[in-house]
């Protein structure tokens, strides 16, 4: 049996009916970069794709590993595939009219500006604390017109209720409990990581809708 997917017009109409035409226009015309495609980044990407964000820039140097599958938006048959390719494939199945740009590279101080220059909003979704700090500093110093939504503290089995979004300054938001370190907690639980990712995705959409934290 041949299954036809909805047309682009039908797709957009359904989103606009759900979100409101004004907000949907803002989502559809936006470009969001997601730096790191692990437990945070892959879940952020799925939420933003479903919401109808027009373009995602997906950046990660890694391949899908069996140890990722408990919390990341990949499938068993994608082990060994570049995360950029696997996630793009999964997102096209979810949201067929999204535009996706992929970069299978490690983000460094040298290449970040070029990789991120077309993004309106940047989601920092690394796992390494030093890499998180590097990207946050770099965006604020070198790309002051862009928003950065960073993450810190979502490891372990702690309460879901302590994961928050904090607007540190005009362009910097931090999501997480800012305490729970994977090196101390020893674990990353899908639901808690997804809560933090959902904070980052929701903050992205709120900024696009011009609704800001005070």
């Amino acid at each position: 049996m041949v299954k036809l997917i909805p047309t682009q017009e039908e797709w957009y109409k359904a989103l606009a009916e759900r979100h409101g035409e004004d907000i949907q226009k803002k989502f559809t015309s936006a470009t969001v970069a997601i730096c790191g495609l692990g437990g945070l980044g892959s879940n952020i990407a799925v939420a933003l794709a479903r919401a109808g964000v027009g373009k995602l820039i997906l950046i990660d140097f890694d391949k899908v590993d069996i140890s990722n599958l408990h919390r990341q938006q990949y499938k068993a048959n994608q082990i060994g595939v570049n995360k950029t390719d696997a996630l793009a494939h999964n997102l096209y199945e979810i949201a067929p009219y999204i535009a996706i740009e992929t970069h299978c590279v490690r983000i460094t101080e040298n290449n970040a500006k070029k990789l991120l220059e077309s993004a309106d909003i940047i989601c920092e979704a690394f796992d390494d604390a030093e890499a998180k700090a590097m990207l946050t500093n770099l965006v604020l110093e070198k790309m002051p017109s862009k928003y950065i939504i960073a993450s810190s503290g979502m490891a372990g089995m702690g309460s879901a209720n302590v994961i928050k979004t904090r607007r540190v300054s005009k362009k910097l938001y931090i999501c997480g409990d800012e305490v729970s370190d994977v090196k101390v907690e020893g674990s990353l639980i899908s639901s808690r990581v997804m809560i933090c990712a959902a904070h980052q995705a929701h903050t992205t959409l709120r900024i696009l809708a011009e609704q800001f934290e005070t």
Binding site: A129, K132, S151, S152, M154, A155, V168, S180, V182, K183
Partner: peptide, 10 residues
Amino acid sequence: VEVVSFVGGG
């Protein structure tokens, strides 16, 4: 002054 301190995990 705001000092944001990052911990690992993602």
